[in-house]
Computed example of a mutant assay.
Amino acid sequence: MSPHPAQPTQTALLVLEDGRTFDGSAFGAVGETVGEAVFSTGMTGYQETLTDPSYRGQVVVMTSPHVGNTGWNDEDDESSRIQVSGYVVRDPAIRPSNWRSTRTLDDALTEHGVVGIGGIDTRALTRHLRERGAMRVGIFSGDAITDEAALLERVRAAPAMAGSALAAEVSTREPYVVEAKGEKRFTVAALDLGIKTMTPTRLAERGIEVHVLPATSSLADVQAVAPDGLFFSNGPGDPATAGDQVTLLQEALRAGLPYFGICFGNQLFGRALGFGTYKLKYGHRGINQPVIDRSTGTVEVTAHNHGFAVDAPLDESTTTPFGRAAVSHVCLNDDVVEGLELRDDDGRLLAFSVQYHPEAAAGPHDAAYLFDRFTDLLASGDDTAGATNESEIQA
């Protein structure tokens, strides 16, 4: 078992691209890593956060000071590995205490080669990022600590998140199927842009057979599974780089295929409808973000992980080649667009998306109704979904 970070054998140094540094102790693997520094406000769910593919290329700072107290188990991973580039905590737990725990958080980080740092003032670091915005960062420990000027240059040479195409790095290489639980009602093609394990599970619970497809899939690949609807998952990177996926979605909308998108899938839906996207100053990450569903007036506490957002008008609908588009959900903290919907001239729902994570991994459960909304959309589109030949697409 790894030495406990409260009794460190290695020192560590965190270096931000603007030159500010923090001294701490090695946590997890010893070495060096670079990425985009972002903070997560969740007090629980660190295992789901660490294994969420949307965090690819990012060094996650936990605002909750005490991390690791429930250890690591074999049930809660949201992908096949830890996805973050690095991990920053204030007080790593001395020992885990949970009946499902099989090893410590430190062990899991070390096993996956994830370089972390503990024992730093994460409150000061979070305030710094809130004031100055997300930026590149490096964590260096052991022999990787050299001259600070040289380390700063390595950080500044790292690629920025804006302009990064990362979805293909985390997508499945081969299609696979998640079977419907109970009676099968529908078939859905799910484009894996960094999908979390719990998402197809939530769909399957509603009688949906989910065909998870690689991010590089074409409309022909989608139609080959004879779907009743199309789903785009969450994922990392800049939505402006996902031109092929936007084109696929536009083709699917022309073909009359009902659509539901989450997170990255919301941003790509926005771009498919003709809206732009932009990078937020420091993004939304955590499981306590308030969002209003404008169709019902209900305020939901929701799980977020996004650094980009859709630039769409909040108070008016927009005519698109596919129907009338409008903002359906808004963040109550800063008025960021958190959902879109597309309707025909008769007001019938054709497609929708949300920026947050209704699969509730790790919690809360306020937005679970969105999977039911998608099921209702599939039911309403039984007679029109899934054009299967080129003439239907062109029509």
Rank of each mutant, 00 (worst) to 15 (best):
Q47L: 07
G363D: 03
P5I: 01
P65A: 13
S380P: 04
C263N: 08
V38D: 01
R343D: 00
G323N: 03
L14S: 01
W99F: 15
G286I: 01
G347Q: 09
G307D: 12
G45A: 09
T302N: 11
Y87P: 02
P227W: 04
R123V: 13
G42V: 02
P258N: 03
F374A: 07
I292A: 15
M62Q: 08
G35D: 06
T375W: 01
F232Q: 02
S80Y: 14
T146P: 00
D334A: 07
A368V: 15
F352Q: 06
R136Q: 10
H329T: 06
I208T: 03
S233Y: 04
F231Y: 12
V212S: 09
S2R: 15
H284L: 05
F232K: 06
A215N: 12
V115L: 04
T44K: 10
T33P: 03
T122A: 06
R81H: 12
D366T: 08
D344S: 11
H284G: 04
P5E: 03
F269T: 10
A224D: 04
T187V: 15
V60H: 06
D77I: 00
S101F: 02
S317T: 14
V222Y: 02
N98V: 02
P227H: 05
T11L: 14
H357K: 07
Q355A: 07
G142N: 03
L129V: 11
E48Y: 08
A351D: 13
A368N: 14
R271F: 09
L273N: 02
D192V: 05
R20L: 08
D315P: 05
S64H: 15
V88M: 09
R130L: 12
L16R: 08
A215R: 03
V210A: 12
P313R: 09
R127Q: 14
Y46F: 13
S101L: 00
L257G: 05
L257S: 06
L151G: 10
D121H: 06
I287G: 10
D121W: 02
D228W: 00
G274I: 04
D346P: 00
V115P: 06
L166S: 04
G270S: 11
A215G: 03
A134N: 10
Q250F: 04
L378W: 03
I262M: 07
T172N: 02
Q223V: 10
L203E: 07
G265D: 09
L349S: 05
Y356T: 00
S217P: 02
L109F: 05
G57S: 03
E359S: 04
N98E: 13
A6Q: 14
T44D: 12
A255R: 12
F27W: 14
L109W: 00
L152M: 11
V354M: 09
N69F: 01
G138N: 08
S171E: 04
V61S: 04
A224E: 01
T247G: 12
